[in-house]
Amino acid sequence: MATSDALRYTRIPLTHGSGAIPAVGFGTLIPDPVATRQATKTALEVGFRHLDCAERYRNEDAVGDAMQSAFKAGAIRRGDIFVTTKLWNTNHRPERVRPAFDASCRRLQVDYVDCYLIHTPFAFQPGDEQDPRDERGKVIYDSGVTLAETWQALERLVDDGRCRSIGLSDVTLEKVREIVAVARIKPAAVQVESHPYLPEWDLLEFCREHGIVLLAFAALGHGLDPKLVDDPVITDIAGRVHKTPAQVALAWAVQRGTAFLTTSTKPEYIRQNFAISTLPEDAMREIREDIRTNVRFNAVVASGVPGFIPRAG
């Protein structure tokens, strides 16, 4: 087992891609570009080496600025950072995939991306409007493209060398099975909401069988009610191991073999979220067996509309 201080530096080798993904990741879903730039800069200074981005977040340029600032300071090189970004729903048609990927690279100011994910398995009407709606306010979906066709376009990005691995996001186990069955290049990672209130054990087992990394977003429940960090099982363990409840939940994520993402604009929380330590086995068992709450905070898997991203702006 890793020593307590080593847990935060865990890297998971990619079976279906090159390199290894840092298990401790920083999510960049932060609405304000100035806050994004500062939080990303702080995350890199603290020790985060995985940045999770997306075209849909509309702040890739701010993340790119923060990375360039770190590179110029000389402490970090591009090869030290694992950069993930995502193809948005309006760009699922194969002819739109490469231009969308190239645009993300330009905004992020990188020559390559370590992992490129299909943001959701739902195709929206192609175009510049990221949230296309009809006159009744309903999402306009695109029935002219299949998920498999979009996946094949991502495979071609890997063939060209500027995309080192590809994966899926906001998907159900059924959708992951569907792609694994037809893929020439298998998903390297699958990003889904997961935390002690939504452990996704079946999906994790499937991912293990197929050499896929499960990457957990909303690893702390996104601060929504019921609050994961107030759960008595978590708080009791936190008191025993002298860590915060958040650190307990994040350590649990790494120790069970997943990678996680956490987001904050507060330097104190960014530091704490990185400073995780190995939990004793009895704590891991308690989290699995004694927590009875089961809740999904983000309904994106049912509609393709992210619950944490405001429609406006």
Rank of each mutant, 00 (worst) to 15 (best):
A2L: 14
S4Y: 03
R11G: 02
I12G: 03
P13F: 10
L14F: 12
T15R: 11
H16N: 15
S18D: 13
T28C: 15
T28I: 07
D32A: 14
A35R: 11
T36I: 07
A39F: 07
A39M: 07
R49I: 11
H50G: 01
C53Q: 03
R56Y: 13
Y57E: 06
Y57L: 06
R58Q: 14
E60R: 03
D61S: 13
A62F: 11
A62W: 05
A62R: 03
G64C: 09
F71Y: 15
F71R: 06
I76M: 08
R77N: 14
R78Q: 13
G79E: 14
G79P: 02
I81C: 04
F82Y: 15
T84N: 11
T85D: 13
H92M: 11
E95T: 03
A100Y: 12
A103W: 06
S104I: 01
Y112L: 02
Y112S: 08
C115S: 13
Y116A: 05
H119D: 08
H119S: 07
F122G: 02
A123C: 04
Q125F: 00
P126M: 08
G127D: 01
E129W: 00
Q130T: 09
D131E: 13
D131V: 15
R136K: 15
G137S: 09
D142Y: 04
G144W: 03
L147H: 09
E149F: 01
L157H: 01
D160Y: 00
R162F: 09
L168C: 02
V171I: 10
E174W: 02
K175M: 10
I179R: 05
R184S: 12
A188V: 01
E200I: 00
E200W: 02
W201Q: 14
L204D: 10
F206E: 01
R208S: 12
I212S: 04
A219W: 01
H222Q: 07
L224D: 11
D225E: 13
P232M: 04
P232H: 09
V233N: 08
I237M: 05
A238Q: 06
A238D: 06
G239N: 10
R240L: 07
H242E: 13
H242Q: 13
T244Y: 04
P245C: 07
Q247F: 06
A249H: 03
L250K: 01
A251E: 03
W252V: 00
V254L: 08
F260D: 01
F260V: 04
L261P: 00
T263N: 02
K266D: 12
P267M: 07
E268I: 07
N273S: 12
A275G: 08
S277D: 11
E281W: 02
A283M: 10
R285D: 14
E286P: 00
I287M: 08
I287F: 02
E289N: 15
I291N: 04
R292L: 12
T293I: 14
N294D: 11
N294V: 15
F297P: 02
N298V: 11
A299P: 15
S303T: 15
P310F: 04
G313R: 12
